[in-house]
């Protein structure tokens, strides 16, 4: 009975996932769940296994044990590109963009799974493909570029842009996938205060206006505590706490995990 209820409550669910590299246990039986429409943060010290967890969710890594459910469906055996088609979009800790393309082309690529025209319609262009491209371009201009405030750089080649803007472009590309759930791996790393605030605002906007569920890995505790509905803490591949930001902030175990040094931990957790 309880099991059934949980399945309903979670849009994305991770059940007892194990992953190891050689002798190193990167994930050691992690179970957690993300509810539809919430902002769910994953925090933890360096090397805790946060990125590995996202990699398991979109199938870069294959967990040795455990299941991953998305909208009631087991996705732990699907191919990477199938996961994208289900509506799981992702950004990376070290930006995975197409460096030699323009910003606009990168964003357009995000629409791959939603556009229909194949080799024949595309080659003929006029008619189906053209209408589709135009409608999509309009969507990009009016919804995405506008939202993320990147009008000025849409024709720039990505690798010429500063890191902070590249992160924004990667977010734009993920949005072009019209995701149901968005996995963000440290979207504000390497940004100054102003850029970080912008990014936090974008995430909130996307969550509220588009109704997209957000899974966020972030080291900036200010951002995490501000915008998250719930927080999950990983340490050495294990979940050590989960709950509302204010509960996490005062959790003994979490404070200990954070470097062991209490002063520093308090300041980093903002407690």
């Amino acid at each position: 009975m309880k099991d059934h209820k949980e399945q309903e409550a979670y849009q994305l669910e991770v059940r007892d996932v194990h992953l190891s590299f050689g002798g190193l246990k990167a994930l050691n039986g992690v179970s957690t769940g993300v509810k539809r429409g919430e902002i769910f943060s994953i925090i933890g010290p360096n090397g805790a296994g946060k990125t590995c967890l996202l990699n398991c969710i979109n199938r870069f890594y294959r967990p040795e044990k455990g299941r991953i459910m998305f909208e009631g469906r087991d996705i732990s055996r699907l191919k990477v590109h199938k996961i994208a088609a289900l509506g799981v979009a992702r950004t990376f800790q070290n930006v995975e963009l197409f460096g030699h393309m323009t910003v606009l082309d990168n964003i357009r690529l995000g629409g791959h799974v939603h556009l229909k025209s194949g080799s024949i319609a595309g080659g003929i262009y006029f008619g189906k493909a053209r209408n589709e491209e135009m409608a999509f371009r309009r969507h990009i201009e009016e919804r995405i570029i506008d939202l993320l405030e990147i009008e000025q750089i849409r024709k720039k080649t990505v690798h010429t842009l500063p890191y902070g803007l590249q992160k924004r472009v990667e977010l734009a590309r993920a949005l072009a996938m019209k995701p149901k759930i968005l996995l963000l791996d440290e979207p504000a790393t390497g940004m100054n205060l102003e850029e970080t605030e912008d990014m936090a605002r974008f995430i909130l906007d996307i969550n509220e206006e588009w109704g997209v569920t957000i899974v966020l890995i972030e080291h900036d505790m200010g951002v995490v505590m501000d915008i998250s509905d719930r927080v999950c803490v990983l340490d050495f591949g294990q979940k050590i706490a989960e709950g509302k930001p204010r509960e996490i902030r005062h959790n003994e175990q979490v404070i200990k995990a954070y470097l062991g040094e209490e002063d520093l931990a308090y300041s980093r957790l903002g407690a």
């Binding site: 994208a84 197409f98 690529l109 791959h112 595309g122 493909a129 996938m177």
Partner: peptide, 22 residues
Amino acid sequence: RTRVGRAFVAIRDRDLAAEIIG
């Protein structure tokens, strides 16, 4: 300049990133 051609270029430039966008 349409979907299929963009997918080609994506595969050429970075096949990992191509896969995550489906």
